[in-house]
């Protein structure tokens, strides 16, 4: 039976076709249409194009000169960097600690993974209350402890990036934590025992045994973190809305959404979407090359 499948290739095509059609209809066609839209004049969401822009590449010129777009790209790249360092980094530290404890490992796995199952919108609303200016949890806490004399505007120019970043990092730490813990579990105890006999304990054990053997898993996490950070949208949108403060917190995703759905600048939003795709492909390629897995 199995040999039949491998000899005749046509059944394979038959099984691949539905998924291919699905992608063509729901991904490639909209994607190509989006590229076309970016060159056209579309005055409102869902309305027909009235023709090509004058010149046809006008949106891309505007993108180049748009300070909010520059802010969005800068913030997105910064977010990618922070994700790599703090999200995967924190997950790694937590995984190494949990791997060493004998009691409660399962509890911590569930605990750290839990934020992922909560909707980003709900988390955004939750953190909005925490960072609220008047009567927010954090401001109340700081004032009650005597660490602040007045309300702090956590979404103001001084703190906005931290306010936006913290919930994003917090939400996905658990995701990488679970992947890394699974990777740690796959390292044979024999290796550790042999290392111990050779005198490798504590930090040496981590540095010379765990991290090298976990390299491929860490690389996978880093690639996922890069591509994941590029797609972050819902949480910052709920918390920072229209680039709060003063157009400084835009990410490429939130800026595209704002231009398309709030401002009705559909063709410009399409141009931003094209840039997001190009940026995504580029960064994913770089991440794949930099964090290439090794064969052992």
């Amino acid at each position: 039976m199995n040999s039949m499948i491998y000899k005749k290739k046509s059944p394979l095509l038959f099984f691949l076709l539905p998924a291919f059609l699905f992608l063509v209809v729901y991904l490639y066609y909209p994607f190509i249409q989006n590229i076309i839209n970016s060159f056209q004049a579309i005055s409102g969401l869902g309305t027909r194009a009235t023709g090509l822009n004058q010149p046809w590449y006008a949106n891309y010129v505007e993108l180049w000169n748009d300070p909010s777009m520059r802010t969005a790209v800068k913030n997105t790249l910064l977010l990618v960097l922070c994700t790599l360092v703090f999200q995967v980094g924190t997950a790694l530290v937590l995984a190494l600690i949990v791997d060493r404890i004998k009691v409660g490992a399962k509890f911590f796995r569930t605990l750290y993974f839990f934020p992922i199952v909560i909707s980003a919108t709900a988390l955004g609303l939750l953190f909005n209350l925490i960072f609220l200016y008047n009567g927010g949890m954090l401001n109340q806490l700081l004032q009650n402890l005597g660490w602040a004399s007045a309300n702090i505007d956590w979404k103001g120019e001084k703190h906005y990036f931290f306010t936006m970043l913290l919930p994003i990092l917090w939400q996905y730490v658990g995701f990488y934590f679970v992947i890394l813990v699974t990777g740690l579990n796959n390292i044979s105890t024999d290796v550790y025992e042999a290392a111990e006999l050779d005198g490798a304990t504590g930090w040496k054990r981590v540095r010379y045994i765990t991290l090298p053997l976990l390299r491929n898993v860490i690389c996978t996490c880093l690639v996922l973190a890069v591509t994941g950070a590029l797609k972050v949208f819902d949480l910052p949108w709920v918390m920072m809305g229209a680039g709060i403060p003063l157009d400084q917190s835009w990410l490429t995703g939130t800026y595209m959404y704002n231009q398309t759905f709030t401002r009705g600048n559909v063709d410009y939003g399409s141009a931003i979407a094209v840039v997001i795709v190009v940026l995504g492909v580029l960064l994913a390629q770089i991440a794949n090359r930099v964090f290439k897995e090794k064969e052992y």
Partner: peptide, 11 residues
């Protein structure tokens, strides 16, 4: 309001 540039209307 001090946070008029960052607050929502509801706030």
């Amino acid at each position: 309001p001090e946070n008029t540039l960052t607050a929502t209307d509801a706030e």
